[in-house]
Design a binder for these strands. Structure first.
Lengths: 206, 206
DNA sequence: ATTTACCCTTAAACTACCTTAAGCGTATTT
DNA sequence: AAATACGCTTAAGGTAGTTTAAGGGTAAAT
């Protein structure tokens, strides 16, 4: 009964372990660094379809996904959603532009599954960057990885057709592909759900 | 006559000043840090259309543009070029994925103007990251900025049509727009030169 | 100085992908 | 348990952008 660990907000008993494990892929944190981090993150339980960022608001948190899955998307003038990214377990999600500039975001971040997250506010993250050089190091590497991923995606969007992009998505993110509805995948690929359905029909008939 | 400062390679007399000025936008380098950097960069003069990276080779250098302009692009199976990015004065250009993984690149980096660059090799950059925390800091911030820029571009490619994208490009990069041929801009926008020409015709007739 | 390569444009035929609409099955909410 | 919203599919008609081809202008290479 997780109700027992809930207070009147959506905060839950803090377990930072997954984040520490995650950092072991980079430069692992010392005990002291862990303590500095622990006092500066907040753990939250998020319901399906709950938004942790809405268009018109400033993105106040850098979010680490412990459990569940999120999508970040923008809405165009015809009211179509366009998925910029997904984030499942052990991944980050944030509108970095809004977070640092403190300007209102044009994006939404929404849970596609019931989720548990760790959040850091800007002042706390800056504190860590200033006082723990290892955070500069780790986040430099993390940002480099994210940048490479994003650049590959951009190139693929230019040079491959929808069928190719879908095929490659299935290969590259099999776990995401199996836990997300096709509508969400279509939006990520930059096509309509109807067209994805057609592609799927053609593929399976082969 | 710059011939006097050239040796048998394309190296020229080292002037690192523009890079130091550039770092003043972040955490400026001390004299000692400047010395460490200076011994680890190589300055080169690059001719128009000369390539500093070709598909099938490992990207060995992190490149800072002192003068001139470069494009990075991929070629699809129909032999069409797709411009991923441009870099003019005081900007970086590198296939980050290939640079760090040391796997062969799928990209080309080519000078679109006669250029002067500073290049750092991987072992030297890693040396700087390890020995000068300020480099971790500066490149973390640089990567964050690059990531934000790229993410905005991806979103725009999904949510705006070619006309919009072209209009926004002219606004956002007026200097690039005036020094690049339209064929290169079309490739960056993800459309054919013919279609860009049509868009331009429609715009100017208004 | 001449040649060659590149750049821009126009236009007609073509295609990948979108729009709209409708029907059906299955989660989710009440 | 019923109602509602969501997800997937099919299909017809529409549009943004491509392809191919051709001509003329300008910059680069020899």
């Amino acid at each position: 009964m997780y109700r027992h660990q809930r207070n009147h907000t959506n905060k839950v008993k803090l377990t930072i372990q997954p984040l520490l494990e995650y950092f072991k892929n980079y430069r692992p944190l010392s005990e002291e660094e862990t303590n500095l981090l622990t006092t500066r993150v907040t753990q939250r339980q998020i319901k399906r379809r709950q938004m942790i960022l809405q268009e018109g608001f400033v993105c106040k948190h850098y979010t680490f996904v412990e459990k569940g899955c999120f999508k970040m998307y923008g809405i165009d003038e015809k009211n179509n959603e366009h998925n910029i990214s997904f984030a499942a377990e052990n991944d980050w999600i944030v509108d970095l532009g809004s977070f640092y500039s403190e300007k209102t975001s044009k994006l939404f971040i929404e849970a596609v599954e019931p989720s548990v997250i760790l959040q850091i506010e800007k002042r706390d993250l800056l504190f860590l960057f200033v006082n723990v050089p290892k955070f500069d190091r780790n986040f430099r590497v993390i940002m480099e990885e994210k940048f490479i991923e994003l650049q590959n995606r951009l190139l693929q969007n230019f040079s491959a057709n929808a069928n190719q992009r879908y095929t490659d998505f299935l290969e590259q993110y099999p776990k995401l592909a199996s836990r997300l509805p096709n509508t969400q995948i279509a939006s990520y690929l930059g096509i309509t759900p109807e067209f994805l359905s057609k592609i799927r029909g053609e593929k399976s008939s082969k």
